[in-house]
Each structure stands twice: as structure tokens, then as C-alpha cells.
Design a protein around this nucleic acid. Structure first.
Lengths: 229, 229
DNA sequence: ACTTATAAGTAAGCGACACTAACTTTGCAA
DNA sequence: TTGCAAAGTTAGTGTCGCTTACTTATAAGT
């Protein structure tokens, strides 16, 4: 009667009413919907309620699968770290492991990840604190850089501390990603090619550690990549 | 009677009831309160309502002075840029204008600003987009770096493009600030001294130093491309 | 096959927040 | 003195995150 009609009507409003009442896999659906909204409206522009509407459930439904809003984001962040790790690995493998080009490509990969999904990138490194799950993947990302740098050093007879160098590279690439992401480059240095920036700087940061002193013009002559006017 | 009593009672709850009903300078009071809350609870952890309570007014009062919540934040961000600019100028002046030490000090000043007021720093560069007011001050910050680099180059006979070098420095320092701020260094490289990091890298990015034995002789001719898979 | 426990949904409601509208108080100026 | 605009207030709207209590479908046990 009225009941049956109501049910049927509700069915129609569901986005994916596979099995009428139960949603099949609401957990994944919510993660997907949240991801979409994150991309569409930025990190703060999405609401859990919106994600529910998109998944075709009421706003109370998520709490059967997640403790709170934050937990959905944490799951997304954790997966994003895995994705970043994988993408970086692919980039470095393509251009040559333990080479400047490979390491540089890894940095550019990092940048491209950030640009491709700005909101998620911000969540990954923002203070919404990943707390638990995203800790390890983040470490693994840097660890991979350390390995590549160490390999490069071995190949080229450098004695530099690979970890220290890797931190430099990470820092620079992260800065470039952040500034590009927020549109700060665009605003302040309109024509900038960020890929080139990273490729230019990578070799500089790969150098050995300690003999940093006054500027010696001695060696200043040789590099054409230094700065063209 | 009751009315008068109520009013008097309300007076007591006001934070600064200079003139009873009217608040003297609510605009400034709200900005101050918002700043405090920003520092206490992070960029997303504050509410306009809280700021009102702290200023001793109702939640409708702010709209006599600001269009919306965002406009308060924009004002704070604009002032923060001025403060950053000034602080950087002081830092470089102390250590010597146009010197590596001065430029390095400017970078460290940037970092310390970020660490001292993380929430505000994030607002400055986050995507909450400063839109109008914070545009110029941000540009001026970089412009100052460009000037210092140019001065340094002139002093030392470098031909480098000061703007390009300045962007490198900005990028690195911004990356260091972001990672330090979010606790990522702490998590991944616990013992790191970020000041040293900046001081180490500054000369490298200035093009001064050199120990880059990178076999990047000519673009087409890099060997060791294909090492292991 | 029938019962039954439980996982997974709904409905209704709470408190908080951003913001609005309409009213009231106050200070200042003609 | 009046009268008016600035700067408050009260009251209310819609939304959000989250909770509680109820309902429904599924799958297991006998």
C-alpha cells in the first residue's frame, strides 16, 4: 500500500539501488563520493551530508562504517600515500634508478600528484593529522628517496649522507608543490615552469655536504645550467 | 529595575565594557579574538561564535563590521604578510644585506614566522585564497628576496638571474616551513635541525657553491641512464 | 524451512554554527 | 531638542555533525 509505494519511490532516488534497502558496499561508495567532493570543492568545501546524498543514503548511515567524518578522510589519505609511493616508484623506474634524471623525475611525479589532486594533497600534509594510518606510508615515501640518493652516491663515489640529501630534495619538491598548488607561483611569478625548476635544482641539492663556504668563482664558469640570464 | 539589573549583569560579562552598550572598537577586538583562537585551535578549529563570546558580543554583531567570516580572516592574513615582510627585513639587516648570511637569515626568519603562528601561516598560503588584499604583500615578500639576491650577485660578480634564484630560495624555505609546521619532519626525520638545513642549502641555491660533480655534461649525453631495473 | 541474531539501513532530534531580518540603544550633529 | 545613522540586540533560518531508537534484510543454526 502506502508503504510499498514509499519504498518504491525511495528506490528511485537511490543512486545505485542494487539490492533495494542495503547498499552493497556503502563504505566504498562513501569514500568515492567524498573523494569526488574533495576534488570539486576543496578540502573544506565538502560535507559528509553531501557525500551521503551522492551515495543515496541518509546522513546517519556513514556511522555504521566510520567512527566520524575524520575517519573517512584518514582512509582517503592513507590510500593517497600508497598511490603517491607507487607513482613515484614508476617515475623513477622509467628514467633510471640511481640517476639524477630518475631522482628528478621522482620529484616531478610528486609535484604532479599534488597538482592533480590538490585537496587530497593538502589533507595528506595538513594538520588534520593523519594520526595513525598515514604515518608509515609517508615515511616510506621519503625512504624511497633516500634509497635512490644512496644508490646515486654509490655509483658516483659520493660520501654524502643520503638521508640528509633526501631531506633537502623532499623539502624543495614539497615547497614547489605547495606553492604551485596554492597558485602562489602563478600570482607572483606568472610564467614559471615548475618542472624545469625542479630539474634545475635537483643536481644542486645532490651535492656533497660540508664544503659550503664563500662563493668561489672558480667553478662558476662551467655550468650552463646555473642560471641563464 | 529588572531591566537595569540585566544590563548591569551583562556589562560584567563583557570583556571590555568601556562604554556599556557600544564596544569601543569591536572590529579590532574581533580580529584579536580570532587571532587568539586561531593560535589556540588551528585554522579550522575556531568559530566566529567563539570570537564573539571572547569579545563579549552576540553572534550577530560581527556583521556590522565584516561581510562574513572570511573577511576577518583576510584582514588577519593581510596584516600577517606585513608582519612577515617586516620581520624578514629586520633579519636580513642584522646579518648583512646582500650576503649569504643575510639571505640565509631571511629564510630562517620566514621559517620562524611559520612556526610561531602555524595557523595563520597556513591561512596565508592555503587555498582559502586571500583573494584581494593579501596579493600585494605576498609579492613584496618575494620582491625583497629578489633584491637581496641581486645585490649579492652584483657584489660577487654573478650573472645569475636574481628572480630565478630567489624563487628557488623561496621554494625551499617554504617547503621547510610547511614540513616543519605540519610535524612531518618530526615524524620522519626526528632529530632534524631545520635552521641548519636552511643555512646549508642557501649557498647551494645561490649558485655560489659547487661541489656538484654531477655528470650532467650535456643534455643529450648522460650515461648511466640504464642501471638496473 | 523456520527462527533468530545481527549488520546495515531509516527517522527524528540535539546542539552548534554561519548568517539574516527586524528591532533597540546610543552618540552626534543640525 | 530632535532625529538619524551607527552599532548593538533578539529571534529565527537552514545546514551540519552526530546520537538514539527503531526497522529491515541477510545469513547462520537447528
Amino acid at each position: 500500500m502506502a508503504k510499498a509505494e514509499k519504498q518504491r519511490a525511495k528506490k528511485m532516488t537511490m543512486v545505485r539501488a542494487k539490492k533495494s534497502f542495503h547498499h552493497g558496499d556503502l563504505r566504498e561508495a562513501l569514500i568515492a563520493a567524498t573523494r569526488e567532493l574533495l576534488i570539486e570543492h576543496g578540502p573544506d568545501g565538502f560535507t559528509l551530508a553531501d557525500a551521503c546524498r551522492r551515495a543515496g543514503v541518509t546522513t546517519a548511515a556513514p556511522y555504521k562504517h566510520f567512527r566520524d567524518k575524520q575517519e573517512i578522510l584518514e582512509e582517503i589519505v592513507a590510500r593517497a600515500f600508497d598511490q603517491l609511493k607507487e607513482q613515484n616508484a614508476r617515475a623513477v623506474a622509467e628514467r633510471g634508478s640511481g640517476t639524477i634524471e630518475g631522482i628528478s623525475a621522482m620529484g616531478i611525479s610528486y609535484l604532479e600528484f599534488a597538482v592533480a589532486q590538490p585537496a587530497i594533497f593538502r589533507l595528506m600534509f595538513g594538520d588534520l593529522k593523519k594520526s595513525k594510518k598515514a604515518d608509515e606510508p609517508g615515511e616510506e615515501c621519503l625512504k624511497h628517496v633516500v634509497e635512490e640518493v644512496a644508490l646515486y652516491c654509490r655509483k658516483n663515489g659520493h660520501t654524502a649522507d643520503a638521508q640528509q640529501v633526501a631531506v633537502r630534495l623532499w623539502t624543495f619538491v614539497h615547497g614547489a608543490s605547495s606553492l604551485e598548488l596554492d597558485g602562489d607561483y602563478e600570482r607572483v611569478v606568472p610564467g614559471l615552469d615548475v618542472h624545469n625548476l625542479i630539474a634545475d635544482v635537483t643536481p644542486r641539492l645532490l651535492g656533497a655536504t660540508s664544503d659550503i663556504r664563500a662563493p668561489r668563482k672558480k667553478k662558476g664558469e662551467l655550468r650552463s645550467d646555473q642560471c641563464e640570464g
